[in-house]
Design a binder for these strands. Sequence first.
RNA 1: GCGGACGUGGCGAAACUGGUAGACGCAAGGGACUUAAAAUCCCUCGACUUCGGUCAUACGGGUUCGAGUCCCGUCGUCCGCACCA
Length: 870
Amino acid sequence: MATERYNAREVEARWQETWNEKDVFVTHNDDPRDKYYVLEMFPYPSGRIHMGHVRNYAMGDVVARFKRAMDFNVLHPMGWDAFGMPAENAAMQNNVHPKDWTYQNIATMRDQLKIMGLSLDWSREFATCDVAYYTQQQRLFLKFLDAGLVYRKNAKVNWDPVDMTVLANEQVIDGRGWRSGALVEQRELTQWFFKISDYSEDLLEAIDTLDRWPDKVRLMQKNWIGRSEGLRVRFEFFGAAPTGDTTLEIFTTRPDTLFGASFMGLSPDHPISIKLAETNPELQSFIDECRRVGTSEEAIEKAEKKGIDTGLRVKHPLDASIELPVYVANFILIDYGTGAIFACPAHDQRDLDFARKYGLNVKPVVLPKDADPATFEIEDEAFTEDGTIFNSGFMNGMTIADAKQAVAEKLERTQVNGQAQAKRQVNYRLRDWGISRQRYWGCPIPVIHCDSCGVVPEKYENLPVKLPDDINFDKPGNPLDRHPTWRETSCPNCGKPAKRESDTMDTFVDSSWYFARFTAPGCDQPTDPDAATKWLPVDQYIGGIEHAILHLLYSRFFTRAMQKVGAVDLKEPFKGLFTQGMVTHETYKSDQGEWLSPAEIKINETNGNRIAVHADSGLPVTIGAIEKMSKSKKNTVDPTDIIETYGADTARWFMLSDSPPERDVIWTEEGVQGSWRFVQRVWRLVNDLATNARRHEIDLAKSNGKALDLRRATHKTLDGVTKDLEALGFNRAVAKLYEFTNVIGKAAQQAGKDQQLDACLYEAAECLVQMFAPMMPHLAEECWSVLGHKVLVSQAKWPSVEKTLLIDETITMPVQINGKRRGEISVPREASKEDVEAATLQEDFVKRALDGNPPRKVIVVPQRIVNVVA
RNA sequence: GCGGACGUGGCGAAACUGGUAGACGCAAGGGACUUAAAAUCCCUCGACUUCGGUCAUACGGGUUCGAGUCCCGUCGUCCGCACCA
């Protein structure tokens, strides 16, 4: 009875239609069952979905379908992170409106997602560029403003003087604008900020409550917030600085190394640096040079350490006879501490590099354990580890921690100009969140600039502040800024003519609350507090590791801010977090050095050597490294092509196989084909059993022999797969299902001969189908129907494990002699340690190893292992 | 530069809290079926070996009856760094 080949395209379309017709995945807020909210990070509508999306959404869909089978009321929505720069770039390059470009991309990508067969509630879909969405975001902004969580201050941006536009850090390449190639300058602009720093301590402390987050993400967030306890110390100038200051205030976390101070460092943006530069052209040009490095911390810290002596001198706070020079240095960040430091080159690498360059003093004050104080010297590497303080007067012999205490106490009591010389301070690396963007395609900031009243929030009843459609990108700069009429409005306060703010919000704002919006997507307020309370927090959030810090931290802040204004009633938005790895692929280069796509090449394998040639020309091709799929390296595979050839189930199955989900996965053609073969094999097997095994009204519990063995395998697999899916161990679940399919395949050779075995085969087949249903839902529906079910497998309850079948009466224990495996014994499961030991010593291979001597020791780990020490 | 992770056969990997290293899949080789091919099915598959074993989880040490797993150090690869999303 030849079963027809499984036709994925036809079958998948048919079941998708059925799900759609029956509204199988539409979720109701009034469903009384326990809720489960699973969410994958929503995509940016870049044009087409890529394999990374397939992997991300396949994982989320497995969770959604699995939890649904566990009888939860599952919320599994989808939307679009639709504002952002690529739409404006497309507008400039292809003369297409950002709005049209975005909505067209959404339409394409929605279709692509739909053919993946994801169990999404599409009725809740929205895009962040929908007026309805950003209206509510503007409302939230105003509420935050009322609550004191928003303010304005000056901040630096990268400025392209040729394109007359603000550049993102990624648009600055080696200090030049990506399009114009012009040297980038820094400009100060007045910008809007969210006061995330109000929550520094809370955001840090609450990390410990996020026990279903990966440890590495929690650690990264802790380091990002960067709490440090230190000392603010005021150093007295000899004379005064040109700003009139008589002291220079610095922040340090290493006051214990104060006796190792060699010089003072000012940020190029420090007020004293700027004042001095007015009369010092050399310093001015140095500051200008620093500003061309860009605003990213990476660029600043990677640059060679450089500086200029200001000529100013300060007194050492612990020894007035020591005079320290004050430098302006390029590695000091204005945003951290006070923008000024004291440098101890012996115990800080940056300070050491600087001191070596300018021939400054290097005096070690922390002595490593076992080092000789008479000969210990610093060479090219600063000593930053633990040790004992020396060369430091009253602190000599102390530990670092004690010295920090001692110096803080002393300086707190010392007076300089009537103030304490130092005070203890907790400092955070976390800075307030600047949200102003000088761009068109974003959520307009709903404020108005009035000549009389200043900056005035727009009235709630006047929302939304809509983006105008009649704009163009034929000139550089922000189209909102130069729109003929859009900025003109009247002051909500005094009614006089006034101008709208033309900055729009950072797109991270859009993605900081979308998860709350999904709980009541049509609400005429940002959230429906009842719905939000019912659904939040998100039980399982899944997305890329690249969002480990910013997006997740901003969302955590936003949730607190929303709680403050009454929009939600919780602090932490994501109870469970999973960060999946990337999809990678080999890269190929022609002999001309051009990147080639996998579709353009052919691979021949001879004697294990893989040789690539150009598919058309036959010219040689170099096989390069395996890298993250990216358009620039052309090593991408289009999910639509794969799905057309093999079907969505095969693509999903392959994305979940092999690699652990948190690790990168390599896309290979052979791997997909392996998945495809499995789909066909399951299809044949299920059809075979549906025809030959038949269901029988028989008590399965009376099974014995082969039938019992099969039942044991069924329930052990069910138990294992259930646990694996619970823990998101998709690759382990897949391996178990392969193994189980092999077991059923063997047992199926006896189908039709024995009713008891047939009944167990039927049970096995049904369990198999249900277990892979979350991963390959279309194939599962088709198989489920072939097995005679009228209800959808998507709506069936997860089968329950018979615990008694998980326990074997006899177990095999490996026997080690001196820690090396030498054989094994079979013992009853409940055998005592003594019985196991006795049985072990009876074995010939043990007797031979002992050579007539008694064992020195026998270690029995029940149900695990026996180790005989000879 | 700072911060974070990862490293096991030809390849992707498995191994629950320290207890049989390599399950499962891919690739490869051999065989069956076929006029042939595809598909399918069966077998082999870490290295060395005097066939007793020996060596193997990036490398070098350590703890332990026992280490892929714990500790110290080294090397390599990848990710994030606040205006990409």
